[in-house]
């Protein structure tokens, strides 16, 4: 279980989150919602250790990870809104670099990359440079990079931005897969073109306050409209993620 306790974050003089305490359980998909500028990305960046929080604690399964460390980076995968890819490396090279940093053996890395390229339908773009990719392909690559390693937490910031219908289907399959594997999944977005039932809870962020919503009726109310990708029944699998 991921627990954020008494978290306060500010940017300059603006308070993003004040003494917020929320949690997300294993096998749960959490929707992080809020208006533009409410602080969704800031919160995810803070969990990932990209920015510092003013105070508060981050616990994973009871262990304190409040200070970002190498060990903490092994516990989560995060796809940032901008994609975070390197303009001068090709799609394949970015995946290879990620494999190298994760410390995968050569053969293992090669297999995972081929599998990922297939799943995300990126095979024909494998020699494209990061700067040549469209916004949608950048998003796919960014998501693909999160799945190279087996971690406990998967975080996605605005995953639906620029994704086409095929991309949304792929993403939906991945979320189903991760949920089935008992992973903690956090998705920050304004819109959710996925079934409302997929989400176990909502973290609603507004004016510095955060709410942990689990009540089904309130969940539906907060999630707003939904676009169902339920018609897509293809299965997906990542053998190294247990």
């Amino acid at each position: 279980m991921l627990e954020l306790k008494d978290i306060s974050i500010s940017r300059g003089e603006r308070e993003i989150v004040r003494n917020a305490s929320v949690s997300a359980g294993a096998g749960e998909v959490t929707a992080l919602i809020g208006r533009n500028g409410a602080g969704k990305t800031t919160l995810l960046n803070c969990i990932a250790g990209l920015i510092e929080k003013d105070s508060g604690f981050v616990f994973l399964n009871g262990r304190d990870f409040s200070l970002p460390s190498e060990e903490w980076r092994k516990k989560f995968s995060y796809s940032i809104d901008s994609g975070g890819i390197i303009p001068v490396l090709t799609v394949e090279e970015q995946l290879m670099l990620a494999c190298y940093l994760i410390g995968l053996k050569r053969e293992d890395g090669r297999l995972r990359i081929e599998h990922i390229l297939n799943t995300f339908k990126l095979k024909k773009y494998r020699n494209y440079f990061g700067e040549e990719l469209s916004a949608g392909l950048t998003k796919r690559l960014s998501m693909a990079l999160t799945l190279l390693k087996d971690t406990g937490i998967y975080m996605y910031d605005e995953p639906f931005n620029a994704l086409d219908v095929e991309g949304i289907f792929i993403f939906k399959r991945i979320i189903d897969f991760l949920k089935g594997k008992g992973k903690i999944v956090i998705i920050a977005s304004h819109t959710f073109p996925l079934s409302k039932d997929l989400f176990s809870r909502i973290w609603y962020i507004s004016d510095g306050f955060m709410e942990n919503i689990v009540d089904p009726e309130r969940k539906k109310e907060y999630l707003g409209y939904s676009y169902s990708a339920d018609g897509d029944n293809d299965e997906t699998n990542f053998p190294w993620i247990e």
Binding site: E70, R73, K74, Y78, G84, I85, I86, A98, L101, I102
Partner: peptide, 17 residues
């Protein structure tokens, strides 16, 4: 020139890289 907030920073060993 290595853009800030890349996937590298988010991976173990990324800071060292």
């Amino acid at each position: 020139a290595l853009p800030s907030s890349t996937f590298i920073e988010l991976l173990p060993g990324g800071k060292r890289f």
